[in-house]
Design a protein around this nucleic acid. Structure first.
Lengths: 209, 209
DNA sequence: CTTTTATCTTTACAATGTAAAGATTGATGT
DNA sequence: ACATCAATCTTTACATTGTAAAGATAAAAG
């Protein structure tokens, strides 16, 4: 009857895996420090020694999510199909709904954390390159490039958020969509321009009422 | 020394007001049933008799948010400036960050609730009209219209979500933006097409790898 | 072999959601 | 006017959570 050893060995990784398991099963709101510890088979307060507190744990998990998302996009940009990154982005959100939701739930995360800040910044670099910019940080880009990046990310992130939130269900129920979000995605993404960018005319700001 | 009367009178409205007060102060994650009751000056379990449980209360609050957002857009569409609805939408999110965030936090809401379902559906009608459709439900629209609606809402919702989440901070730090999200919004929103819609060419779906 | 340090457990406490039962008041019917 | 009822609010109770503090265990260091 050998009980598990007092020292786990690499509890840190085990906890992150347990957390993701629960995340996939029950969604981000079900992630509790105690529940994760239970899933990992250790005492309730063990994870705190590795992550500080709950927001620390979730931040490290979100950081992993950002890394994977960046890698997914980076790989899709090598695909000759112009829309491949778009579909890859949405597919990532579909395949990892809990993780994607967690990544943008800022009230449960701590962006001062090294791991999360670095991963988030790395995603920026990938995004900038996807619109043809050579800048690594948004602060170094011109306004037109910022507009393109903001456009791409807002459109995709908005679509994914609405999709995962169930807000697009009434649309997907339309027979023309056949329940497939990617059909909707294809009629939504503007056909030519923003994927392979040239310089974009900058409209002037209309006067506010 | 007259203590407050045993029967409040219209506790329901008072609780919703107290909840919004806390929402504005401390954000959506700080909304607790007990805290709201405390703010309203009643016992901890009093709100439950009016809203069932916490998700019921938050759902009714989110429903109010959807009503106000729909009204804001509806009013902005009468403005001759083509981009007025766009800026009005973002300004609504800026002015009510907590409420806007709550409206799309589906894990804390109950969409089966009559109030929330109705308010959400009413927003659809306004959105459909904003792209020139006469349909009242997304199920009755053609695919091109669905694409336009999805485009507008995804772009705006994504922008607002990223903005409120602080994800756009690196962009806004760029001197060209001067810290004003509406500058970014103007260079992001594609100049002519999707605001005043005509028929849009429907691209075919590229084959998935 | 002793001491130190990292790792994990136990214990403890305040806060939360919610169920159950009791108290208070306004409304209803005769 | 008075009894009864139903609606509204409070009290009490319990399981669960995050986290701090102190103790136990084992690996590493000297």
């Amino acid at each position: 009857m050998s009980r598990p050893p007092y020292h786990h060995g690499n509890l840190r990784a085990a906890v992150l895996e347990a957390a993701e398991r629960l995340l996939d099963q029950d969604g981000p709101s079900a992630l509790s420090l105690r529940g994760i510890a239970r899933e990992a088979g250790v005492s309730a307060t063990a994870p705190a020694h590795h992550f500080g507190d709950l927001s620390g744990l979730l931040s490290d998990l979100a950081a992993i999510g950002f890394q994977r998302l960046a890698e997914t996009i980076r790989r899709a940009t090598t695909d000759p199909t112009p829309r491949a990154p778009v579909h890859a982005y949405v597919r990532f959100a579909q395949d990892n709904p809990g993780l994607y939701t967690l990544m943008f739930r800022s009230d449960r995360l701590d962006y001062r954390r090294e791991s999360l800040a670095a991963a988030s910044q790395a995603s920026w670099a990938v995004l900038l390159r996807s619109v043809g910019s050579e800048a690594r940080m948004p602060a170094e880009s011109d306004l037109a490039t910022l507009g393109q990046v903001t456009f791409r990310w807002s459109l995709l992130h908005g679509f994914c958020t609405l999709l995962l939130d169930g807000q697009l269900r009434p649309l997907l129920a339309n027979p023309a969509c056949n329940g497939d979000p990617h059909v909707l995605l294809d009629v939504m993404v503007p056909p030519p321009a923003p994927v392979r960018p040239g310089p974009v005319p900058i409209p002037t700001r209309p006067p506010s009422p």
